[in-house]
Amino acid sequence: MSARPGLEVVRAGALTTVQDLGRPGFAHLGVTGSGALDLPAHRAANRLVGNPDACATLETTLTGCALRALAPVVVAVTGAPAPVRVDGAPAPWGAPVSLAVGQVLDVGTAVAGVRSHVAVAGGVDAAPVLGSRSTDLLSGLGPAPLRDGDLLAVGAPGAAPVGGPVGVPLPGPPEELALPVVLGPRADWFTPAALTTLWRGTWTVSSASNRVGLRLDGPALERARTDELASEGMVLGAIQVPPEGRPIVFLADHPVTGGYPVVGVVPAAALAAVAQATPGTPVRFTPSSVTPSS
């Protein structure tokens, strides 16, 4: 590995973490999947700088971040749209940007959405843990969230040409989330009225949302059973309903087991939009079958 200090963190922002495709296969040991919340944005950023999808990028939260180049690097910003500047001069979002030694890339506060992704050619070369460079905020695995003054190693750029192709559109953040839901496994723990509420109710994204889960303000879902559910395995996208009734949609850093019933599951493909939903965004749930309709 030709790890070299490539970037210095000038401004870490509210919460900037290293993320890749995550840490699958260790759930039975208590390790969650982790990885970028907005995977299409992560992949697009990587492709813009010529990286494979598995290279680690930086995931910012609302307020962006600023990075000084310690070596010549090519970077790209995707995900939540934000003003991009190099040494104060406007630079493109969603396109490769070259930085000379000493130049500072500033990703500003998101003008929409929550999480921007910053890729660097060669990838952020933090030490992998269980095969992944992702920060897992639930159990503290992987690199710590960025702090001002941190130095980030950058891997050797690959042979892929910089700039493309970007195989996915760069979606704008949602004004409203309409989330598909496959009912179960514990839909029978809820009253018929609760299931009617699930399909007809409107919630809003709570500011308590994080990488563990999307928390919602709005109507409570009433349980038909009051006994305790023995803890059971939890999947990404599970809609867990704690006793107070407000649903939580589990995101990448979710606990691998839980003792509250799961009324339904949001398929993973719908979760990129969840990653970009700002507090206050209206949320509805729509019934979906196991097989996605084409």
């Binding site: 699958p24 296969g25 759930a27 039975h28 023995a230 803890s231 059971e232 395995g233 087991t257």
Partner: peptide, 11 residues
């Protein structure tokens, strides 16, 4: 990908 045993279930 993942097999998660629990008290009365296996995911």
């Amino acid at each position: 990908r993942d097999v998660v045993p629990a008290a009365r279930t296996v995911l």
